[in-house]
């Protein structure tokens, strides 16, 4: 489903060139619950960003569902992300002036769906992530775990085939982090959504059905569990 082929990404800091990814190759199948792990600076977020079509690679090729994303234009990438990808961020990135309901419905509004459908799907997904009755709360009135549940609902509501999560539990305590991972795992099993998340948290790695370890921009190990 996802094919990463010899991907290279360099960052330039003045005259210094930082090699974030040095020829990474990887294949990810539909429905996998995959963790990209490694120490800080190993390139895991960079790889996630490249798969998520929000960064530009310097070499190699990535294709998703047989579409080569590395050659896509900016507008095509935007459309691709809108229709196929969901994102979960470490800091949730909810819009503080919107309610939980509006934060989730926002994604569907981008797809120009009928209002009735937006409402039904948003309410259903909020119920599924355990936020029934909290639809009208703004993020400031939700706990960290609840905010991340809203973010998960936001990622899932459009039924994407792939969800990319960058350190989704890093801002949560271990109990809440476990709850969030269990929720993500449940959603992965229920919806057959492919989850790819970056982490350096051991607990998160334990949850993964496949663990790809990165070190200095290269794959150190790739093990299925």
């Amino acid at each position: 489903m996802i094919k990463v082929d010899n991907v290279v990404r360099n960052y330039h800091a003045g005259e210094t060139v930082v090699k974030a990814l040095r020829g990474v190759s990887l294949e990810i199948k539909k429905g996998e619950f995959l963790s990209i792990a490694g120490p800080s600076g190993s390139g895991k977020t960079t790889l996630l960003n490249l798969i998520g079509c929000i960064d530009q690679m310097d070499g190699g090729e990535i294709s998703i569902k047989d579409e080569v994303i590395s050659t896509m234009k900016k507008k095509e990438k935007t459309n691709f992300r809108r229709n196929n990808l969901g994102f979960i961020f470490q800091t949730y990135n909810l819009i503080p002036v919107l309610t939980a309901y509006e934060n989730v419905a926002f994604v569907l509004s981008l797809l120009n769906l009928p209002e009735r459908e937006v409402k039904d799907r948003t309410m259903a997904i909020l119920k599924e992530v355990g936020l029934e009755g909290m639809e009208h709360r703004r993020p400031s009135r939700l706990s960290g775990g609840q905010q991340q549940r809203v973010a998960i609902a936001r990622a899932l509501v459009k039924n994407p085939e792939i969800i990319l999560a960058d350190e989704p539990t890093a801002n949560l305590d271990s109990d809440t982090g476990r709850e969030i991972l269990e929720l993500m795992k449940t959603m992965n099993e229920k919806h057959k959504t492919t989850f790819i998340f970056s982490t350096h948290d051991k607990m998160v790695m334990e949850f993964a059905s496949r663990l790809v370890m990165l070190h200095d921009g290269q794959i150190q190990s790739d093990e299925k569990r």
């Binding site: 929000i54 992300r81 994102f87 981008l110 936001r154």
Partner: peptide, 9 residues
Amino acid sequence: GMMRSLGMS
């Protein structure tokens, strides 16, 4: 950044 990631043009 979030809005752009989610496909907002």
